[in-house]
Amino acid sequence: MSMPVYHLFADAPAPVAPFSHACEADGWVFVTGQLPIDPGNEAAPLPEGIEAQTHKTFANLLVVLKDLGLGLENVVSARAFLTDFYGDYQRFNTIYASYFAEDKRPARTCIGTTGLARHALVEIDFIARRP
C-alpha cells in the first residue's frame, strides 16, 4: 500500500476542525464531509433551506474533486447527514439526484443526526476512485 497523501485546497472552505479536505491511498480518495459554507466568506450565514444548502454543499464537494483532478463520475460512495431527516429527506433527494446520471449513482448512506457544525442542515462526504 502506498503512503497516504493528505490534501488541503485554498479554494475550498477552510476546515472547521483538524482535518484535510481529502486523503488518498492506492487510487482511493476519501473526501471529507463538506458543509454549505461559502469559501469566499466563511463567516457568511449559511444558505436558507435544505435545497440551497444541498446545492452549496455539492458546490464545495465539486471544488475538492476538481482540485484532485476528479469529477462526480469518480464517486463510488456517498454519505449524507441531515439534521431534519423526516422533514428534509425528500427535498434533499430531489437535489442530490440531479447531480448524478440515473444509471451512474454511487452507493449511498443517508443518516439523520442531531446536529452538524455551523448548525448546517446537511453534510455530505464522498469516496472516489481514480481511473
Rank of each mutant, 00 (worst) to 15 (best):
A120R: 12
P47M: 05
R79H: 11
G69E: 09
V122K: 01
P106G: 04
L61K: 10
G69L: 05
F100A: 05
P47F: 02
G112E: 12
K104S: 12
S20G: 04
C110H: 08
S98Q: 10
N93D: 13
G87W: 05
L68E: 12
Q90S: 12
N74G: 04
A12T: 06
H55Q: 10
R105Q: 12
E42G: 02
K56E: 06
G69Q: 08
I95H: 03
P106A: 07
A44M: 00
H55F: 12
Q34D: 03
A44K: 01
T57E: 02
F100P: 04
G49P: 03
A17Y: 10
P18A: 14
Y86R: 15
M1V: 12
H7C: 10
A120E: 13
H119G: 13
S98D: 09
K66R: 15
A78I: 02
I95C: 01
H119Q: 15
S77F: 14
T113M: 11
N74V: 03
G40H: 02
I37R: 11
V31D: 00
G115Y: 03
A22R: 12
P4Q: 10
A22K: 12
W28F: 06
F81P: 02
N74P: 04
A25W: 09
A97F: 06
D84K: 11
P106F: 06
A120H: 13
F30R: 07
F9C: 08
P47S: 09
D11W: 05
A44I: 00
L82Y: 07
T32E: 06
T94K: 15
D125N: 14
P36C: 02
L72P: 05
G69F: 07
A59Q: 03
T109N: 12
P45S: 15
P45F: 08
C110I: 15
I37C: 07
T113Q: 06
L65A: 14
P45A: 15
P4V: 11
A14F: 04
D88K: 01
A97Q: 12
L116M: 07
S98T: 08
A80P: 05
L116Q: 08
E102M: 08
R105H: 01
E48Q: 12
V75C: 03
P131I: 03
F126S: 09
I37Q: 06
D11G: 04
L46C: 03
V29E: 11
N74M: 04
D67F: 02
A107L: 09
G87S: 03
F9V: 09
V64N: 12
R130E: 14
G40V: 00
A120G: 13
F58L: 04
Y89W: 11
M1H: 10
D125G: 14
G87Q: 04
A117N: 11
M1W: 08
L61Q: 11
F9Y: 15
V76L: 10
L70Y: 06
D38V: 03
F100M: 09
Y6A: 07
F30K: 05
T32L: 02
R129D: 00
S20A: 15
Y6Q: 06
V64P: 11
K66S: 14
F30H: 10
A14P: 01
D103G: 02
P131A: 10
N93R: 15
Y99K: 00
G112Q: 11
N60K: 14
F85Q: 10
L82Q: 10
L62V: 07
T32R: 04
L68C: 06
R118P: 04
M1N: 10
P47G: 12
E51S: 11
T83A: 05
N60H: 14
F85D: 09
P4A: 13
L65F: 14
A22V: 13
